[in-house]
Design a protein around this nucleic acid. Structure first.
Length: 552
RNA sequence: GGCUCCAUGGUCAAGAGGUUAAGACACCGCCCUUUCACGGCAGUAACCCGGGUUCAAUUCCCGGUGGAGUCACCA
């Protein structure tokens, strides 16, 4: 068989050589140790926490080393394209602080190593495939869907591994004439790798490959024997082939991807070998897991877990910084301790390393995210929180936007409530929770939600409120204000100090805490809230009094 | 099923051939306190199993078991 002729038959219009592309995309000139990473999402219109998790690793590695982090759109599957998906990927990641230094942008691309959309790179892949055919490392395969199904059924019956390999690779040894006539007939075909692995080896004879994974250390796996498809019938490459060609030409140094790629690593290794290309460092990250209904861990799935969509967190109003900090704590085991030691440094100061990455899948832990979020938000100035909340509301709850109009100072006082001092309150977690938490400050949302304590009769409740209104003076400081409550509470039969009540409960109807609960419910609608005096100072005398009298 | 990866409290995890096996979240109790939150203090809770190597194994090796991933003209 003359492979040159075959290559010419299959790819008559391809006249560039791999070396031509190598010249167009030369090795990058970068500082010593700089890493080139990439994110290669397929534009399916869905992006979840797991994607962010991986992207974060890429981004940290690149920016920490003054390298390059680029975005390549892996749109080789025409069945899964979704309108606007690229925009969604870029804006979602950007929201969470992931920015690319190169690659696809919403309407085009930036950088010298493009095109960055695989659908625009057809001739490049075909050139690489052509050279593989020329060297006898790839061949056209005319097996159709039905024939492949038949092969698989036969393999299953005889308990052999499925796939096109060895004797099952029926089109491997087609003569030039056979191929020519099929091509002239117009029969569709794919290009398959002619695997150099030994399909007949068993047991100890099976050759293994050994590679150093950046996260997992030495990996030993059996060599590939499968004649996998590298070019589909449409001339578009499969992931495997596109990955090898692109990461070579784009001069990627570190391929960060999920552990689900581990099992196809031998394919990629063989592809790099037959193409004579140097391999990047592979870093296979652990998957983010979730607990399913049966109590088992499983990989996050975009189909099954819409609540893990990035959109969900934006919609709930998690602050991007909180999500980033959470991700970092599960990504690098020493981050948490670093954070405790350096509570005020920006997280970008933390030196991220792939060595410290865990290689077993972490369960997504909402409790932890919430806890981290509290610590993150407490450090953000009220002014910033206001702007952030306003933007969030504009996007997700337009009906709330009137609350923000000419109301910045009011808002900031609310958000700063109890946040000063060395033991600041930490009750802000995410935007929708914050609104729920502070809603009583706004008349449109204020309502009586809780019931008065059982030990206080409705009659007594009214007496308490009446006495409170009578003695109310907005100018009282906190202790003067509370002394008054103690005093009239005592005359109504409530212990001025809870301890007195505990000592002799039979002497009282209750204690001052019960009295203030009545006030609290009248003013806030809830039995639990931050300090009443401070809230009243923010609310103002008029609003406070109106609310009090309404309960009489 | 084949292949691959993984295995320390409920969760995230540190760790070393000999340790009272860190820490964080969650949970429980107490303190602070007019409620809640914050904060402080204390507490419950873990090395998957079986062999081997060794004076000594949770740590190293082998074998199970369990969990996960993957076996497409998807990525």
């Amino acid at each position: 068989m003359n492979y040159m002729n075959l290559a010419e038959l299959l790819f008559p219009h391809i006249n560039k050589k791999i070396s031509d592309y190598d010249a167009i995309y030369p090795e990058r000139i970068l500082p010593e140790g700089a890493k080139v990473t990439r994110l290669g999402p397929s534009p399916t219109g869905f992006i979840h926490l797991g994607n962010l998790y991986g992207a974060f690793v890429d981004e940290r590695l690149a920016t920490q080393s003054n390298g390059v982090f680029f975005l390549r759109i892996e749109d080789t599957d025409d069945k899964r394209q979704v309108e606007g998906a690229v925009e969604l990927i870029i804006t979602s990641l950007k929201f969470f602080g992931i920015n690319f230094s190169e690659g696809a942008i919403i309407d085009g691309s930036v950088g010298d190593y493009g095109p960055y959309r695989q659908s625009d790179r057809g001739p490049i892949y075909q050139c690489f495939a052509k050279e593989l055919v020329e060297k006898g490392f790839a061949y056209p395969c005319f097996l159709g869907e039905e024939e492949i199904t038949l092969i698989r059924e036969e393999q299953e019956k005889s308990k052999q591994n499925p796939g096109i390999y060895g004797e099952w690779a029926k089109n491997r040894a087609l003569t030039y004439e056979e191929i020519l006539s099929k091509v002239e007939e117009g029969k569709p075909y794919v290009i398959r790798l002619k695997s150099q692995g030994n399909p007949n080896a068993t047991g100890d004879q099976i050759k293994t490959i050994s590679i150093e994974d950046g996260i997992r250390g030495t990996l030993v796996m059996p060599e590939n024997i499968q004649d996998i498809v590298i070019l589909k019938a449409t001339g578009i490459p499969t992931y495997h082939f596109a990955h090898v060609v692109d990461d070579h030409l784009m001069r990627t140094t570190h391929v960060v991807r999920g552990a689900e790629w581990l099992s196809s690593l031998p394919v990629h290794v063989e592809l790099f070998q037959v193409l004579g290309l140097e391999m990047p460092v592979f870093c296979h990250t652990a998957q983010l897991m979730k607990l399913d209904e049966d109590g088992n861990k499983r990989k996050l799935s975009k189909r099954l877990d819409p609540e893990l969509s990035l959109e969900y967190y934006r919609n709930q109003g998690y602050h991007p910084k909180a999500v980033r900090e959470y991700l970092l704590t599960i990504l690098n085991s020493n981050f948490e301790e670093w954070r405790i030691a350096n509570p005020d440094l920006p997280m970008e100061d933390f030196h991220f390393t792939i060595e410290k990455m865990s290689n077993s899948g972490a369960l997504f832990d909402l409790n932890k995210l919430n806890d981290i979020s509290k610590d993150v938000l407490v450090k953000i100035p009220a002014k910033e929180l206001y702007t952030w909340l306003k933007e969030w509301a504009a996007e997700y709850h337009p009906e709330m936007t009137p609350l923000f109009e000419n109301n910045e100072e009011y808002f900031e006082r609310i958000l700063d409530l109890g946040r000063s001092g060395d033991k600041p309150r930490k009750d802000l977690i995410y935007a929708s929770q914050i609104f729920e938490f502070i809603s009583y400050f706004f008349d449109a949302y204020f309502k009586i939600e809780d019931k008065n304590p059982e030990n206080i009769s409705d009659e007594d409740a009214k007496l308490i409120l009446k006495a409170y209104i009578e003695t109310y003076n907005q100018k009282d400081d906190q202790s003067a204000w509370f002394d008054k409550i103690r005093t009239f509470g005592a005359t109504l039969g409530y212990a001025a100090k809870p301890k007195d009540y505990k000592k002799n409960p039979e002497l009282y109807k209750g204690h001052v805490g019960d009295v203030s609960t009545i006030i609290r419910i009248a003013v806030m609608g809830r039995s639990q809230s931050p300090d009443v005096w401070e809230i009243q100072q923010i609310l103002g005398e008029e609003k406070t009094k109106i609310r009090l009298s309404k309960q009489l």
